[in-house]
Write a protein that binds this DNA or RNA. Structure first.
Length: 574
RNA sequence: GCGCCCGUAGCUCAACUGGAUAGAGCAUUUGAUUUCGGCUCAAAAGGUUAAAGGUUCGAAUCCUUUCGGGCGCACCA
């Protein structure tokens, strides 16, 4: 059992006992959320816990007094070298070396599929969902990679996840797309400037039109052609996504979901439940009186749920708003019986979050579990200057271009290494460097070093004869260095990091963890340069070499698994 | 005008969701290694966590106010 689980169990048993002794229901202790951490400082031992401070209130004891009680019980534990109680009430644990050596063995003995002890849920994870009206840009990549990484992580801990792409293949933006293609069909020789600004600018659609229609003369773009155009764009998007290893299991078409029948059904339900009505929309606060044209819409009673004004569902011309089609889509998801829906949206959709949740909760009797993760903006930097992006002129950097410059690994790392709600300054220059400043290089280099050790042992030190499973004559008591203990501690917390990353939907915890592990491993490596006895491979000392190589196996395993979860390559050589 | 998010070292970011003296990388200064793998390692310096108040054993984290930045608040996406 890894130390987190082990120590938690021990502490919980003790706590229950103390609760009973104090005539309290021992189950009260179940809700206590105490922590077990790697101690932030050496003086604080190997591990530390705040258990006494968290539990003291219910027990009406001072934290120190409670800590003493807990420590008294723990003293019987043979693996513990020393226990200390510090100031406000922390308990610091000092374990025997044997304990950590055993932990390494435990870690490598774990089965391939780790049991995270999480209740498996059926999850619909929606990401990307870029409109099929143009190419992907770097902002799309952020949502795509966050979504895709979350997909891996949620699957890893045991959830059943469907990665889904919602195709906005209906509505206004598609009309605009078709108009743009029509323009290119009939205006082949005109210069860009003459393009009306109601159309999508840029060369992409111009070239696409050429590619699809070649020299065919088309007068009317019927449904068949519309479909072909959208399919072509969608295929380009999928190809771009593949470049950064992003995939979906399910593609859902807006057009199919928002059939007349479904619309009528939803309209009827909304009216019956008095959630919607036909009426005039209020003038928004940021619009001048003179610019405001009063129109009659089909409106959601958003005010009832604390919104400033009621929100349009169906426009005067009968077409759907984005909001309405989102309701249809989510009702469709709900009918597919997911335990949880997670959406990755750009922060510009922020305004919809509350009202979508409100309408879904009102429409459905059962609680709707919808989690919406918003991603902030991405700024591209080159030579310390921001690369200007102008969607209006059509001159924006496509994701494709960024991939061809820095590669998929760099993009993937960068996009998940920051909390979603913070903007990213993506400095492309960093990823051309082959040094510590480039975090991807740094982590991959640690992995390559592990592989190098393993390779040397296999080829030049055959007498060592070791692999992950062959642990004959392995003497882990040779691992006595502080650096080795630190690595073991980190490695054994790996699965907790993944678990927390899944619980909070935060992949950046994994990238940060891998960076830390790479750091302490490089450190371990380099102390061998100062003191030959501390090298991993030592002449004339097979036992130590074997034990240290075994540790390297563990580091390799973690780096490999971590990088694979984030879909970043693990190079054997660099 | 209203709502939400953000503000942490000169720069780019962490901080296990309320824990100990707020940590990393870059840049700066100093040293080690160039022999398992070369852009690797160590040390120093750098902070009133935007500001002020409050909550409690304990606050970057929670509450209130102010300042600054971003986004949203018809339609369009």
């Amino acid at each position: 059992m890894l130390y987190q689980e082990y120590l938690r169990n021990e502490l919980e048993i003790i706590l229950k006992k103390i609760f009973s002794e104090n005539c309290l229901n021992k189950n009260l202790s179940n809700n206590l959320n105490f922590s077990i951490d790697i101690s932030p400082r050496k003086e604080f031992g190997d591990l530390s816990s705040n258990i006494a401070m968290v539990a003291c209130k219910i027990l009406k004891l001072s934290p120190i007094r409670l800590a003493e009680k807990i420590v008294n019980q723990l003293n019987k534990n043979k693996m513990i070298l020393k226990l200390e109680i510090v100031k406000p009430g922390f308990i610091n644990f000092f374990f025997k070396s044997l304990f950590w050596q055993n932990q390494l063995q435990e870690f490598l003995d774990l089965p391939e599929k780790f049991d995270y002890k999480i209740k498996s849920r059926k999850i619909c994870l929606e990401y990307v969902s870029a409109n099929p009206t143009g190419q992907m840009h770097i902002g799309h990549a952020r949502g795509a990679i966050l979504g895709d990484s979350l997909f891996s992580i949620l699957c890893e801990v045991g959830h059943k996840v469907t990665g889904e792409y919602y195709i906005n293949d209906a509505g206004e933006q598609i009309n605009k797309l078709i108009e743009t293609v029509k323009f290119h069909l009939t205006n082949t020789r005109r210069v860009e400037d003459e393009m009306p600004d109601t159309l999508y600018p840029g060369d992409y659609l111009k070239n696409l039109t050429k590619k699809i229609f070649k020299k065919e003369k088309i007068n009317v773009l019927n449904e068949k052609y519309k479909k072909i155009i959208i399919e072509n764009i969608l295929n380009d998007i999928k190809a771009d996504l593949e470049l950064i290893n992003v995939f979906h299991q399910s593609f859902v078409s807006e057009k199919e979901i928002s059939s007349l029948q479904n619309i009528e059904k939803l309209k009827k339900k909304l009216l019956e439940m008095e959630l919607a009505y036909y009426g005039f929309q209020e003038k928004p606060k940021n619009i001048e009186e003179k610019d405001w044209i009063k129109k009659k819409h089909f409106l959601f009673r958003s005010k009832k749920f604390g919104d400033d004004s009621d929100r349009a569902l169906i426009k005067p011309n009968g077409s759907l708003t984005y909001f309405m089609s989102d309701i249809l889509y989510h009702q469709n998801k709900i009918s597919r019986k997911f335990d949880l829906m997670i959406n990755i949206w750009g922060v510009d959709h922020f305004g919809y979050v509350k009202r979508l949740k409100n309408v879904l909760n009102a429409l459905n009797k059962e609680n709707v579990n919808l989690e919406i993760k918003l991603t902030s903006l991405v700024n591209l930097l080159k030579k310390n200057k921001q690369i200007k992006m102008s969607k209006r002129s059509g001159n924006f950097i496509t994701m494709n271009e960024v991939v061809s410059e820095v590669g998929s690994d760099a993009i993937r790392y960068m996009m998940i290494s920051r909390n979603a709600d913070k903007k990213i300054d993506f400095d492309l220059d960093i990823f051309f460097q082959k040094n510590k400043e480039n975090p991807v290089f740094y982590i991959q280099y640690a992995y390559a070093r592990c592989m190098s050790i393993i390779q040397i042992v296999k080829e030049k030190r055959k007498e060592i004869s070791i692999d992950e499973k062959n642990t004959d004559s392995l003497k882990l008591n040779k691992l006595m260095l502080e650096e080795e203990k630190l690595i073991i501690k980190h490695i054994c917390s790996f699965y907790d990091i993944i678990k927390n990353s899944a619980i909070h939907y935060e992949p950046h915890r994994i990238s940060a963890y891998l960076y830390d592990l790479a750091k302490i491993f490089h450190n371990y490596w380099s102390i061998g340069n100062i003191d030959a006895k501390k090298r991993i491979l030592i002449e004339n000392d097979d036992d130590t070499t074997r034990a240290r190589t075994y540790l390297v196996f563990a580091v390799k395993k973690v780096l490999n698994k971590g990088l694979s979860l984030l879909k970043i390559k693990c190079p054997n050589k660099m």
